[in-house]
């Protein structure tokens, strides 16, 4: 192998990797990974003759940091509801007024005027869900509708419980378990939270995100998790059950917003309107496995989601659900310290 052959090899690699030609209209979407249905995108591309490009992020904070610095070239992002007020406050969003869009009539009333974006001036619902406890009933048959599975692990599950390492979600659950209010800065409550977490940790096998595969394969017998993830796990293994903790559980939603620095504003607006169509919203749900906030999407939903206990919150659990909020920065600092101590 000499330099000429090396150069040729490199040349070939480059040749093989030349980019694709760009279509006339484009739309740059910045979204969570593995979250955007290719079928729905294809439909959008065909309908409006727009080439969509999707770029992934893996956390709200990364997305916020990048967009805040600017120059990203994205038109659309999908932040969670806790972050939407920050995006608005920091002037990162374009007021597209989805409330006046044609398809807005389809948005379910309880989602039409949310606290995080009054009057839906900026955002369109993408997906919503809950955070609860998933248990493999082959391993544990007792009552599982409690955060106690995670924080006061029954003997059968010791060393087999995973915790999804979303700091705010875990602290939220722990506060609920000791009977406090979300975003509390009450030191007495937080001391209980800290002691609870530190004492619980030896019973955990891991703190990681990759639960769908690990629950399915049996590495984990229980985990804290998002509902759509739990649905996928149950489809792989019928013994897996999703539970709504009786101490209170978190509700979340992700929302489609248009960035102020967007270059393709009209296309972005078309997209916001497009996904409020019931059939398209159902198409998105069929892929990401979470509920959408569009009335009339039910009849297009895949059969295995229509009455899924992970998607439809049972009536008795409903009052226990609570929308998660963004805590004050000083409170957040306390939580970070507890978290660092937990993971040291």
């Amino acid at each position: 192998m000499n330099w000429k052959t090396m150069a040729t090899a490199m040349g070939l690699a480059l040749l093989a990797s030349t980019g694709l030609a760009r279509a006339e209209g484009v739309l740059n979407i910045y979204n969570w990974g593995n979250y955007t249905s290719p079928d729905v995108i294809k439909k959008f591309e065909d309908k409006y003759k727009i080439k969509v490009s999707i770029t992934d992020y893996d956390s709200n904070d990364t997305a916020l940091a990048k967009v805040r610095q600017g120059g990203t070239g994205f038109d659309i992002a999908v932040p969670s509801q806790t972050y939407v007020p920050i995006w608005i406050k920091e002037g990162l969003l374009l007021e597209t007024d989805p409330g006046k869009m044609e398809n807005f009539k389809n948005v379910a009333p309880e989602w039409a005027n949310p606290e995080f974006d009054p009057g839906r001036k900026y955002s369109v619902p993408w997906a919503w869900g809950t955070i609860g406890v998933v248990v493999n009933t082959d391993a544990y048959k007792g009552p599982a509708d409690t955060w106690g599975i995670v924080f006061n692990t029954p003997d059968e599950l010791k060393g087999k419980v995973n915790v999804v390492p979303e700091m705010n979600d875990v602290i939220f659950a722990a506060i609920k378990y000791v009977g406090g209010q979300q975003c509390t800065d009450d030191k007495a409550v937080l001391k209980k939270v800290r002691d609870l977490l530190v004492a619980a940790k030896p019973n955990w096998i891991a703190m990681e995100y990759n639960t769908i595969e690990k629950m399915g394969a049996g590495d984990f017998k229980a985990t804290s998790d998002w509902n759509g993830s739990a649905l996928r796990q149950r489809l792989a293994n019928a013994a897996i059950h999703y539970n709504y903790p009786k101490e209170g559980f978190g509700l979340w939603s992700d929302n489609v917003v248009v960035l102020k620095e967007a270059k393709n504003v009209e296309n972005a607006k078309l997209f916001q309107n497009f996904i409020m169509d019931p059939e398209n919203a159902a198409g998105l749900s069929a892929f990401h496995r979470y509920a959408n906030a569009i009335t009339g999407s039910d009849k297009y939903m895949p059969a295995d989601m229509k009455d899924a206990p992970e998607v439809v919150i049972p009536a008795d659990a409903k009052p226990k659900g609570e929308f998660q909020k963004m805590c004050a920065p000083e409170t957040q600092e306390l939580y970070t310290k507890i978290w660092t101590e937990l993971q040291k």
């Binding site: 904070d61 705010n168 990681e208 957040q332 978290w339 040291k344």
Partner: peptide, 19 residues
């Protein structure tokens, strides 16, 4: 398994969720 942080995770926490 992410139970114990390493240096990078600690630093990442500050730039991410720790703000």
């Amino acid at each position: 398994g992410g139970k114990n942080m390493m240096l990078s995770n600690l630093i990442e926490l500050q730039f991410g969720q720790g703000r």
